[in-house]
Design a binder for these strands. Sequence first.
RNA 1: CGGGGCGUAGCUCAGCCUGGUAGAGCGCUUGCUUUGGGAGCAAGAAGUCGUCAGUUCGAAUCUGGCCGCCCCGACCA
Length: 503
Amino acid sequence: MSQNAITPTREQDFPEWYQQVVRAADLAENSEVRGCMVIKPWGYGLWENIQRQLDAKFKETGHVNAYFPLLIPLSYLEKEAEHAEGFATECAVVTHHRLEARKQPDGSTKMVPTGELAEPFVIRPTSETIIGAAFARWVESYRDLPLLINQWANVMRWEMRPRLFLRTAEFLWQEGHTAHETAEEALEETRLMHRVYTDFLRNHLAIPVIPGEKTENERFPGAVNTFTVEAMVQDRKAIQAGTSHYLGQNFAKAANIQFLGRDNTRQLAHTTSWGVSTRLIGTLIMAHGDDDGVILPPRIAPSQIVILPVTPKPDTRQEVIDACEALAQTLRVQTFHGEPLRVHVDKRDLPGGTKNWEWVKKGVPLRVEIGPRDISTRSVAVSRRDQGPKAKEFIPKEDFLQSVVERLQDIQDGLLARATAFRDANLHKINTLEEFQAFFAEGAPGGFALMHWAGSNEEEDRLAKEMKVTIRCIPLGDTHAEEGQCFLTGRPSTRRVVFARSY
RNA sequence: CGGGGCGUAGCUCAGCCUGGUAGAGCGCUUGCUUUGGGAGCAAGAAGUCGUCAGUUCGAAUCUGGCCGCCCCGACCA
């Protein structure tokens, strides 16, 4: 048996490691439909926690949930040219509404689509257009604004190269859509949700991000401005973990979202949209996982604590299981960040080592073992997922009950600290084209390059094509604001931007 | 849509060159042994060898068509 649970290691082959971890942790699997995944209970449990906690933040900031149709009339996509073009190459189209059973000469039956639709429907790749149409009906007066709506849904984008969680043809997400009276208010909404994402990634997923603005090239199709949260994962590549778009009046114009203003004139609303998807789960795996599987931040782990009964002898088995159940009950009364502790007792009749390794691979923050000896000494054996798989601390049960919340928080903080240290160690200020090329050269470690940039869209495109490096974002705030010269054109620049390879 | 590769048990694959009608490891089931640990031994279940056609006495194996999948590019949360 090898030292690590996952083969290959991250060092040997990162993409393959990722796939093996998804499988070993039982998070999801590919389905028979290309590009679509089956999210298994452990993976879906993560999504449920992400969903619940983010949803609470949306509600706190004044949003309400609604649901809009999966199918969008084709004509809706013709209303905003830039938006339509951006998604045109990845749309699944519904053209028929019934099937007819036709007997084949060999006796088998073939189902043949019939009943062609007069107007085809597009399966939503995103819902700006159909929600815009609803907003147009709902908004009449400035008194109807702001309209602050969110929907939890699935969307479909026919991707060429799917990868579990990171890029699937169908994925789950939330999309916020809001309409406002003024540009300032809409822009503030865009920024607010951008901050909500930054905070969620940092404090719930323990992933530090660089919040920033996208360049024109990288913007959402149809947006005036796109804000992004960019994370670094362990192969030093960037991943866009969430976006918040200021749409100006582009979509209001396309969908005719008009209202009668305070001055009694008809005006177009200013809209926003923002979203995060199941890609967060992929980001989480790549940010925290190690060569033994995933490592889950306690705040979003489906089970934060797994109790493993150690039952060496049949005659003490029931006593041990009872002690485990009793401990679980005591723990469930406690709360972590306002939610009752999620505790699971693994009573399956399997060798202890097998069960232990399974939970290591699944990334449970705390594993607790109780055996006959521990019952007599009133102690428990505690293992932390952020330490080695064999590390074990024997502590009095009472002490454990006292300190469990603190321990979970310590793991949560440790993960963030580790990810931040890694990100910072691979974030470099670079000034010249030569250094830039060396930084992203084949075989070089790579990372985030902070560069002065004042090039054109075409020059940015050229770098993307030649070097496979893109501007991930123009960081917000003062941190990277400084005078300098563009590394490519020599033109003056007032701040550094983040260049990186990305997912 | 271009360039490469592959379809054999739930998974990973061997067998194909040199046709004779199916194998391994892991997993699964059962029994015994073991038990602070991803255990051992034994028995067992499981595949119309992607599909259609051709060659042949005989095809997983040779030939051709079709279908599907994977990897590398363009697209992308």
